[in-house]
Design a binder for these strands. Sequence first.
DNA 1: ATAAACTTTCAGTAATTTCTGAAACTTCTG
DNA 2: CAGAAGTTTCAGAAATTACTGAAAGTTTAT
Lengths: 185, 185
Amino acid sequence: MKMTPLITSAVMHFGEMGSRWGFNRTVGQILALIVLNEEPISAQEIADALNISRGNTSMGLKELQSWRLVKQHHVPGERKEFFIPAGDIWTLANRVFEERRKREIDPTMSLLRDLLLDAPANEKEANAQDKLNEIHDLLESITAWSEELQNLGPEKLNTLMKLGSGVGRMLELKDKLLPGKNSVN
Amino acid sequence: MKMTPLITSAVMHFGEMGSRWGFNRTVGQILALIVLNEEPISAQEIADALNISRGNTSMGLKELQSWRLVKQHHVPGERKEFFIPAGDIWTLANRVFEERRKREIDPTMSLLRDLLLDAPANEKEANAQDKLNEIHDLLESITAWSEELQNLGPEKLNTLMKLGSGVGRMLELKDKLLPGKNSVN
DNA sequence: ATAAACTTTCAGTAATTTCTGAAACTTCTG
DNA sequence: CAGAAGTTTCAGAAATTACTGAAAGTTTAT
């Protein structure tokens, strides 16, 4: 499992970025290694290639599985488990979005809902509640929107992205296009 | 600068979420406090309310300013500086997106570009480069798309979000709508 | 049922990140 | 220009997070 210089650079970088992406260095490295390696790779090989303990490797793989970025792959005739990416690049990116939404937005939405239930005790609180309400609505829009985009599926999403500034033009024509159907709000 | 129970809960929560949002606990708390407080607030008041050192407060405010989430506000006749949010909720959310993109995507794009310049040394590297290339293209699309959305401005973006599943329908009609103009790629 | 091959767990340690507070710095004011 | 009012910096301490490796657990083969 000797890593080529190119793979080494990429793996190191993904390690450094790991924490910004929501996991830690080791987890980032393991992910990169699994994605960039066409063959399935065993936990032991990962530990050797990255020079980390077997225990740490196990925990990292567990986390990557909880993010649904990596899955086990059984090689017939082999005793040990191998690991491969849980899908193509597009799928992986989607999973990262989704998981992060769960970790970064959902808990806040839930708290905001609770805080908005109680009647404000005074002026100050009323004002704060207004702000919290604004935040809640914004997060709700983002959540709904991102689910919407995921439902579009890869091809349509790609069309939409490639449309670029066309989106602006389209919006201007929206009312003529979908008369009366835009009553979502 | 006594915080009401409601504000305290919100501030504490934003503190806990802070690290997931790209900054640390204190920074998250300071941000929440500034946003939820209708009046401008001084660094000393922040330190007192959150029970943190004056030094830590100073660093936190500096970071929030580097994220362009908070700005100074000079009160005539007062010697000290006060702080207020750098815009409405929508603006702040946008800034967070933008800053995170800078920190989470841009460095990777840059590395990928470099790694894709060299000719692959062998089969293994060629395969890895293919994967890296896919990642690069995906990140590029995301970046371009998010810039596009920002250029739309708040109102249109909101229209688009509220459109919900209408987006799918619109895409189907796209070709009729914008004949020949969708040659963005 | 024993053993071999492999994986997971977790207590303790190491590395990293955040926080404090005292000292240095920067304005303003008289 | 002295000093009062305020801010920033930064070395060291505290808190948090990640990692190791040995022990416990699992599975398969005989």
